[in-house]
């Protein structure tokens, strides 16, 4: 049996949320006193702990442990089992990192990640995260609204969709040498979905930079959609007129659509989506429409048949 021999995380790495909060308060105070600035601590961090602010969009639900979030992942570039990414993703090279921006916009180009992050302020967003497989977590992301970046790229009137690509690097991403999915991994959003204030580009979680298995150094977080929409390790962003074909839809179009909104009443072709298991709990709980973000996003889909546009 495949028992976890080396999850790659020691007991010391496990931060419970209370400790994390306390540390954050300390960092804020420290920043106020100029300690952080004078020591240079944390200032190089993409997740920018010291300047993070908490958002009104955050849930107050109990967050999933750091250990669980970083050891139970779907990242097929590093294998198809949940433990594979934590074991193998160390081979991913995240620095230097550039993002190609192209398509229907006025400011295309190849951007250094540092330059993309310079003008944004990183905030904390504690979001529910629901996987299409029927499990869920509550994750304190660090990041900034995707809308901020889109505005800087000046999309033109033809830009109806935003298409994302994960890095393609089969030498360092062993899964890309198999045909479990077509590579590179592709995801997409309609422009209004991409501009919604909930939609986040994340650089960290629990106040730390993202680990490779969670999609370092830059990933998408779309909390009202199934997890596979939240594409990891983004290397390319394109503005398109036509709806992008995302990888899972390409893999099985009868089971995975473009929208992939969390919806307990629209089952996966093979299994029900009515319930989910919150990681850390034993029995399943009911899944909420739009993963509980109905108030924020329902109007994006007014008049749409959610069963047809699954």
């Amino acid at each position: 049996m495949d028992f976890d021999k080396n999850p790659g995380i020691s007991e010391n790495d496990i931060t419970d949320y209370e400790t994390y909060k306390k540390r954050r308060t300390f960092m804020k105070t420290a920043a106020g006193l100029g300690i952080v600035a004078s020591t240079g601590l944390a200032m190089k961090s993409f997740s920018g702990d010291a300047k993070a602010k908490t958002s009104n969009y955050s849930t107050t639900e109990k967050t999933t442990s750091y250990k669980s979030i970083t050891s139970y992942c779907n990242y097929y570039e590093f294998g198809t089992s949940k433990r594979d990414p934590a074991k193998h993703a160390h081979s991913l090279v995240t620095s230097p990192w550039t993002v190609d921006v192209d398509g229907e916009c006025d400011n295309p180009g190849t951007y250094d990640l540092e330059d993309l992050l310079k003008p944004v302020s990183i905030e904390e967003r504690i979001y529910r995260f629901r996987c299409v497989e029927g499990w869920s977590m509550v994750i304190p992301w660090m990041g900034f609204p995707l809308a901020d970046l889109i505005k800087r790229m000046q999309p033109n009137s033809k830009a109806k969709y935003v298409r994302f690509e994960t890095l393609y690097d089969p030498d360092n991403m062993p899964g890309q040498r198999t045909d479990s999915l077509s590579w590179p991994y592709v995801e997409g959003l309609r422009m209004d979905e991409a501009m919604n204030p909930l939609t986040l580009l994340s650089t960290g979680l629990y106040g730390k930079d993202l680990l490779n298995q969670n999609g370092a150094p830059l990933r998408l977080v779309v909390p009202w959609k199934y997890g596979f929409k939240s594409i990891k390790s983004i290397a390319r962003i394109s503005f398109t007129e036509l709806q992008p074909l995302n990888s899972w839809q390409l893999s099985s179009s009868s089971e995975y659509g473009f929208y992939s909104n969390v919806n307990p009443d629209v089952p996966h072709q093979r299994w029900s989506q009515a319930k989910e298991r919150r990681v850390g709990e034993f029995t399943k709980r009911k899944t909420q429409l739009f993963n509980g973000y109905e108030k924020e996003v329902a109007e994006l889909y007014t008049g749409m048949d959610l069963k047809r546009f699954f």
């Binding site: 028992f3 976890d4 250990k67 979030i69 050891s71 298991r277 990681v279």
Partner: peptide, 18 residues
């Protein structure tokens, strides 16, 4: 027995029920 051991020592990963 291995499953019982795994549950007791919490070595079955994040989603141990599954």
């Amino acid at each position: 027995l291995l499953l019982i051991k795994g549950i007791s020592f919490d070595t079955l990963g994040a989603n141990s029920p599954e």
